[in-house]
Design a binder for these strands. Structure first.
Length: 393
DNA sequence: TCTGGGGTCCTAGGACCC
DNA sequence: TCTGGGGTCCTAGGACCC
């Protein structure tokens, strides 16, 4: 039986979802029809564009460009800020409709999923089924999607990236040569900026050239494992299954970019405190404990340093995570160099709840637990947890 | 023009063990 | 006295994705 995979991708997801929200709230303008963007904090000079409308894209305004730059290109650009709770609701509605077409669904991101349709078509034309899915999302939820159809996940995903918005495309094995090989290598999944540069410097510009390249030669350029994957993918081959179960998280992290570079240790510590609270809160919510803490800093020149340390036992206590972060910081920061960003992550996660006796014997632990409980409650009430004063724990 | 935030995977080198 | 080779784990850095 030949496999049939769909890849469904929401067109300019955050922008479309915001447009739907504005219309729902009685707004007159559909921001999808004018140059518009979603960005973090539009007043912050450092904020960048999270999503752009198609008219904005036509003016050369792309995701991840600074808002200030976009404003120079288009002074009357409509800028709206994001609403993550709303995006979550749109995403769930979208996924639910997709799931009704096949239970074999793999969520790839907040606005993309794969469906294994192999045993679901029952003789129907896949393009017709995809069109009915596309229409159903549009009629029910008010935003458009692209559907890519192929014999595997890679080709389905490549197909959904063809002409947008509100389109269905196929990319079957016999269409690879005509539809995919003429594209630049950068259009191939997993080929980013660096890999593109490397390939182009050896004269490999198109996916077709990559596909026909000698595997040994490619191995010398990008390494054994990656070479095999690129070579397969350029030839339209991908054996990976549509995986229904979402794998458990392996790490959690949070980072903050300052609106101005900071060098005062008090400011840096306050930022570290905030990200530690956030990360610890999130692992408690998901019932994890972590035994590895890592911190990272980004300097004015964009160089980054990272340092990780191991805890004697897994924890979800903010104070213990923060203490480790504070211990690590001097190893990557001299206390003077201005910093653009600080971040904190935890990994080596476990659901193990066994606690060692030493923790119970420490009278500070009870205080730490209580403090975390208060923090978690404040977050759940949607209160600004800053009301819990910043303190040296 | 001046570059966010949250993830995953891979690689290379060093430590340590047998 | 000086030496091998394999395996595993850890760490830092770099690539990619959305």
């Amino acid at each position: 039986m030949n496999r049939v995979v769909f890849h469904i991708d929401v067109n300019s997801a955050f922008l479309s979802w915001t447009a739907v929200k504005i219309l729902k709230e009685g707004g007159q303008q559909d921001i999808r029809s004018v140059p518009s963007v979603v960005s973090g904090d539009p007043s912050d000079r450092r904020s960048i564009i999270t999503a752009a409308s198609i008219p904005a894209k036509k003016l050369g305004i792309k995701t991840a460009t600074p808002v200030s730059m976009a404003l120079r290109k288009c002074p009357d650009l409509v800028i709206v800020s994001g609403d993550w709770e709303w995006y979550g609701r749109c995403s769930r509605g979208f996924i639910d409709i997709c799931r009704s077409y096949s239970p074999v669904l793999e969520q790839f991101s907040i606005d993309e999923c794969f469906l294994d349709m192999t045993f679901r078509l029952k003789g129907r034309d896949p393009v017709e089924v995809a069109n009915s899915l596309r229409e159903q999302v549009k009629q029910t939820l008010g935003f458009t999607v692209n559907v890519g159809i192929g014999p595997n996940k890679l080709l389905a995903k490549m197909a959904s990236d063809f002409e947008k918005p509100d389109k269905v495309h196929t990319l079957w094995a016999d269409q690879v040569e005509g539809k995919m090989w003429p594209l630049g290598v950068r259009d191939l999944l997993w080929v980013g900026k660096k890999t593109e540069e490397r390939l182009v410097s050896y004269g490999i510009r198109t996916i077709g050239q990559l596909a026909k390249l000698d595997l040994q030669h490619l191995t010398r350029l990008v390494g054994d494992k990656f070479a095999r994957q690129l070579h397969d993918n350029a030839n339209g081959l991908d054996g990976s299954p549509v995986v229904t179960d979402r794998p458990e998280a392996k790490s959690y992290s949070a980072e903050r970019t300052f609106s101005k570079d900071l060098s005062d240790p008090k400011d840096i510590d306050r930022a570290l405190f905030k990200v530690a609270c956030l990360v610890a809160h999130r692992i408690r919510k998901d019932k994890f404990r972590a035994s590895c803490v890592s911190i990272f800093v980004k300097r004015t020149d964009f160089t980054v340093s990272q340092k990780q340390g191991t805890l004697s036992q897994p924890t979800d206590i903010t104070a213990l995570i923060l203490n480790e972060a504070r211990r690590l910081l001097p190893e990557i920061w001299d206390g003077e160099t201005p910093l653009r960003q600080v971040g904190l992550g935890v990994s080596r996660l476990t659901h193990d709840t066994a606690e060692q006796m030493t923790l119970f014997e420490d009278p500070k632990m009870e205080y730490y637990r209580k403090w975390d409980e208060e923090y978690d409650k404040a977050r759940e009430r949607n209160e600004d947890p800053r009301t819990l004063a910043y303190k040296k724990q």
